[in-house]
C-alpha cells in the first residue's frame, strides 16, 4: 500500500479549497441552525447565487471582478430577504420546506437561463483578475506528501482569511447582547417577544448574516475551480454542511471549521485507503471492488456520523450537559 499517497491526500484535504468552502457554508449555517434555530435547508442556494453573481457579472456581462463580488453578496442578501419575508412569521418547519424548494429553484434557474448562465456546463473565464493578483510564484511541495500549485496556494490563502474574518464576526456577534437575543429566539420565540424584542427582525438579520457568510464559500468554490456549474449547488451540498455543523458541535464558534476539516479528512482518507487496500489484497474483491469503493466511503462516513450522534450528540466541541437539557 502506498501510505505516502494516503497520508498526503488526507492531509491536503485538511486545508484545501474544498474544505474551506464547506467550512464557510457551515459557519453561515451554524448562525442559522446552531444559534438562531432556523432550519435552513437551502444553504447551497446562498453559495450558488454568490458564485453565479460573480461569474455572470464578469463572464456574461464583461463587468469588473470587484463589481462581481458586490453583485454576489447583494444576491445573497436579496435571497435571504426573499426567503425570510414570507416564512419567518410562520412556524420553523415552514422555513425548512421553503428553503429546500428555493435551493432547487435557484439551481434549476441556473440551468434554465443558459444564455446567461451557460446552462448545465456553467461558466468559466471569470477568475483571471483574481489569479492576476496571485503573489505566489511557485508551487509548494513538502516531501512527496503534500503539493499545492501556486493557484491553489492563493485561493487557500484568501479562503483562510475569509474563514478568520467570518469566525471573528460570529465570535463577537454571539458574545454581544445581539447574540443573546438570537440564542434566546432559538430557545423560545414567544418568551423573547414578551420581553419586547422584535423577533421577526432578529431572525431576518440572522438569516442575512448566515447567508452572507455562507456565500463567501460560493466565491471560494467558483474561484478555486475557475468555473461554476449548477449541480455543484445541489441539496447534498447543504446536507454535507449540516453534517459538518453537527460534527463540530452546533452553536460553537470554531465547530464548523473543525467539523469541515475532520469531515473532509475522513472522506479523503477512506477514499484513498479503500482502493489501495483492494489493490493490495487486504480487502477481497468478492466484498468490494475498486469501483464500489467510491460508494462505500459515503456509507462509512454516514455510519460514523450516526455513531457520533448516538455517543456524542453534542458534536466534538459541544457541551453534553447543554445538549441534554430538554428544550422546555
Amino acid at each position: 500500500m502506498n501510505f505516502e499517497v494516503i497520508a498526503g491526500v488526507s492531509l491536503e484535504s485538511l486545508i484545501n479549497a474544498q474544505m474551506i468552502a464547506y467550512a464557510l457554508a457551515a459557519i453561515g449555517l451554524n448562525v442559522h441552525f446552531g444559534y438562531t434555530g432556523l432550519l435552513n435547508f437551502g444553504q447551497s442556494a446562498f453559495l450558488g447565487v454568490a458564485a453565479y453573481g460573480l461569474a455572470m457579472t464578469v463572464a456574461t456581462f464583461g463587468l469588473p471582478f470587484w463589481l462581481g463580488l458586490i453583485v454576489g453578496l447583494l444576491s445573497a442578501v436579496v435571497l435571504a430577504l426573499l426567503l425570510g419575508v414570507p416564512t419567518l412569521r410562520l412556524r420553523a418547519d415552514y422555513l425548512a420546506i421553503v428553503t429546500i424548494a428555493a435551493a432547487e429553484i435557484v439551481r434549476l434557474l441556473f440551468r434554465y437561463f443558459s444564455e446567461y448562465t451557460g446552462g448545465s456546463d456553467g461558466l468559466q473565464a471569470f477568475s483571471d483578475d483574481f489569479y492576476a493578483m496571485n503573489p505566489y510564484g511557485s508551487a509548494l511541495e513538502i516531501g512527496n506528501l503534500i503539493s499545492f500549485s501556486a493557484r491553489e496556494l492563493w485561493i487557500m490563502t484568501v479562503g483562510w482569511v475569509l474563514i478568520a474574518i467570518s469566525v471573528t464576526i460570529v465570535l463577537f456577534a454571539m458574545r454581544s447582547p445581539w447574540g443573546r437575543v438570537i440564542k434566546a429566539i432559538r430557545e423560545d420565540e414567544d418568551a423573547v417577544r414578551s420581553l419586547g424584542k422584535n423577533v421577526v427582525s432578529y431572525k431576518m438579520q440572522a438569516l442575512v448574516l448566515g447567508g452572507v457568510l455562507g456565500s463567501l464559500g460560493g466565491y471560494v468554490i467558483a474561484l478555486g475551480n475557475a468555473a461554476v456549474q449548477p449541480d455543484t449547488f445541489g441539496t447534498e451540498f447543504t446536507f454535507y454542511a449540516y453534517a459538518i455543523v453537527i460534527l463540530g458541535g452546533a452553536a460553537r464558534v470554531f465547530g464548523p471549521v473543525a467539523g469541515s476539516m475532520i469531515f473532509w479528512f475522513l472522506l479523503a482518507f477512506v477514499n484513498a485507503t479503500l482502493p489501495e487496500a483492494i489493490r493490495a489484497g487486504y480487502i477481497p474483491t468478492w466484498l468490494m471492488t475498486e469501483t464500489q469503493a467510491g460508494a462505500v466511503q459515503y456509507i462509512l462516513v454516514g455510519l460514523g456520523l450516526m455513531l457520533l450522534l448516538i455517543f456524542r450528540p453534542q458534536g466534538l466541541f459541544g457541551d453534553k450537559k447543554e445538549v441534554m437539557l430538554d428544550g422546555r
Partner: peptide, 11 residues
C-alpha cells in the same frame, strides 16, 4: 408570563 413557563433553557 406564560402558563407553561418559558425559561430559556440553554441560556
Amino acid at each position: 408570563t406564560f402558563q407553561l413557563t418559558k425559561a430559556l433553557s440553554r441560556l
